[in-house]
Design a protein around this nucleic acid. Structure first.
Lengths: 109, 109
DNA sequence: GCACACTATGTCGTATCTGACATATACTGC
DNA sequence: GCAGTATATGTCAGATACGACATAGTGTGC
């Protein structure tokens, strides 16, 4: 497993599963976490691809730079709602959304 | 347009766009709304397909029947997080998630 | 080294979402 | 008509996420 992913998984040590031994999250919770990671990756990629700074994106979506940073870091304090808003705000289409989800299939290994 | 969809769009007259004329929501907001509608449909279908009542699903996800009802009705008071949690709790896979998103493509007409 | 742009992290008051509960409605079989 | 089951709707106190701000870290050109 890539250290990058590990690092972020640790960073994202989710609220819900945190107290339990380690990785004691339900399947659903785990899927949700992975989903968020995939999306936040996609957001960062989409934003950079379009040459936007976090500040630019924040303005587009009526938020702040710090929150965008948290979004991209998959901070536990950001909701899927906000993540999706950010994703679309980068200019990403639904087709790209589907692709982002498809990307997850490969992560199983 | 099917009256069913219209009715639910009205029901889902979203918080954010509500005050503005009508359908004065940003593209991103609109995409988010449509996304939610697609997902809530998929949840209801998935739940029924597996022969679960709203109460069953509520127990599975540690919530209440009333909230499940709101989820399926795409009530403005439910978050995407909760919607996704419900979706996975029905037993739906990520493949089904992708299909649910794909279903939206056809709605453009 | 400093100035500058970008990004990361922590905190705060307020707004929104949460499960739980009460209650209403809809549809059965009796 | 009346139980019983499923679903819908309204409300509330407590939990969580929000934007905003302050500030720290990181990189780059001078």
């Amino acid at each position: 497993m890539s250290t990058a992913k590990l690092k972020r998984l640790k960073a994202a040590s989710w609220k819900a599963g945190n107290a339990r031994d380690f990785l004691q999250l339900s399947d659903e919770e785990a899927m949700l976490v992975e989903l968020k990671l995939m999306l936040t990756d996609a957001i960062k990629a989409s934003r950079q691809k379009r040459g936007l700074s976090q500040i630019d994106l924040a303005k587009k979506m009526g938020s702040s730079q710090s929150r965008v940073a948290k979004i991209e870091a998959a901070d536990p304090s950001v909701s899927l709602d906000l993540i999706m808003r950010a994703f679309f705000a980068t200019g990403a289409t639904r087709r790209e959304l589907q692709r982002a989800f498809g990307a997850g299939e490969k992560l199983a290994a």
